[in-house]
Structure formats: structure tokens, C-alpha cells
Simulated scan of single mutants.
Amino acid sequence: MALLLRTVARHSVYASHLQFGPLCRHAVPMGTTAKEEMNKFWAKNANLNRPMSPHITVYRWSVPMVMSISHRATGIGLSGGISLFAVAALVLPGNFSNYLDLIHSMSYGPAFLAFSKFALALPVSFHTFNGIRHLRWDVGKGFKIPQVYRSGYTVLTLTLLTSIALASI
């Protein structure tokens, strides 16, 4: 092992800086430590009044930004809701009709039921229409900024109309 290290040291660019013991190798000493380098980095950024990292508060909110965040949030919410519903269907006693009768017996007013239907239909319709918008982007269409905004407003309008229509059924 020591012979191998000495052979490598003879052919190395840094051979004059390295010292080899029987089985250990010493690294070239650096002028500064990593902590000192990081302190210089943060001091420079503070002097230049730079933010610590790109963050939501740095940018002005726009329709594409809100649509992207909302698409991800609805996707997470819908998959979580479906998973919870599936687990509940597996572990709770009885069948679906028993729980549906329980909801009917609570005698909520029509306004509450319409709002509940709207609250369930809104994320489903938004995620569906925005997913279609993303599929259109996947084929390379609609990337110009006016088209991005127009398709965003179209998705929002269709989402609202569809959710109202589904809640009124």
C-alpha cells in the first residue's frame, strides 16, 4: 500500500506538497476553511442586498405562478382525499349506504349541501382542466405569454362554470 502511494506521489502534480506515512496521506493545507468561505459568501450577499434565496416574496404573483402552485396543491389534495376514502372504505364497519343514510339523517340545509358539492367539484374540475392545459403544452403549443395567460383564464372560467353546474345537480 505504501509503495503504491509513493509511486502515485512521484507522478502527481501535487507530489511536492504531499507527505506519505506508512499507510496515511496528508492533504494539501487550504488557505481558508469552509466556514470562512461561507461567511464571506453571506457577507457579500448581505452587502449587495440580495435575498437569501429565490422565494415567493421576491417575485410578483402572476396567473401562471398561481395556477402552477394550485395545480400541485389540488393534485396532492385529491390524491390524499381519495386515499383516505379508500382506507376508510376498507377499515370502517358497514357499507356505503349506511353512511349515506347517516348523512341524510343529519338534515343539513340545501345551502350547505350545495356548498359541499361545490367544494368537492372545484378542485376536481380545476385539476382536470389545468391538466388538459398541461397536455397541450406537452405537444408544444401555447407557450407564448399571451397564450399562457389566456389559457389560464379559460381554465379558471371553465372550472367555475363546471363547479357551479355540478353543485346544482
Rank of each mutant, 00 (worst) to 15 (best):
R50W: 14
A119W: 12
I56K: 12
W61A: 07
R72N: 12
F143H: 13
A34S: 14
H71A: 13
N49C: 10
D138I: 02
G140S: 00
V155T: 07
S105R: 13
L122T: 02
H127G: 01
D138P: 01
F85V: 03
A46F: 03
G94N: 09
T32A: 08
K44V: 10
P123G: 05
F115H: 03
K44H: 09
I76N: 05
L100I: 04
L156C: 01
M38W: 07
T57G: 09
T157F: 13
N45L: 07
L48K: 12
T33A: 04
G94E: 15
A46C: 04
S70D: 05
S107D: 10
A46D: 04
V139T: 05
H55P: 00
T128L: 11
I103P: 10
L90Q: 14
T157M: 15
G152F: 07
Y149N: 13
L158Q: 10
I145H: 06
A88Y: 10
V148K: 11
S107F: 01
A86Y: 06
S151F: 01
R150K: 10
F96M: 15
Y153C: 11
G109R: 11
P110I: 11
Q147F: 07
K40R: 07
M38K: 05
I132M: 13
F41Q: 12
T33H: 03
G75T: 00
L135G: 00
A111L: 11
K35E: 03
H71T: 13
S53I: 05
P54N: 06
R60L: 13
V58C: 07
K141M: 11
P146N: 04
F41N: 10
N45F: 08
F41Y: 15
P93I: 14
S97A: 15
S53W: 11
H134D: 03
G75E: 02
Y59H: 09
H55M: 03
L48C: 14
S116W: 15
M65L: 06
I76D: 05
M106F: 12
G140C: 02
G94R: 15
L135F: 08
S68G: 09
M67L: 14
I145T: 14
Q147M: 06
G109I: 15
S97L: 14
Y108I: 02
F126L: 08
P54V: 01
A73T: 02
A89E: 11
I82Y: 12
Y99A: 04
L102C: 09
G75S: 03
F112C: 00
L84P: 04
W61E: 11
P146T: 10
V91E: 08
I69P: 03
G142P: 00
F96C: 10
I132E: 08
G75L: 03
V155R: 03
F126K: 02
H127C: 01
H127R: 00
S116H: 07
L92N: 15
A43S: 08
K144E: 14
V155F: 05
I103K: 08
N45D: 02
R50S: 00
T57Q: 11
S68L: 05
F112A: 01
T128M: 12
P54H: 04
V124W: 00
I82H: 09
V124P: 00
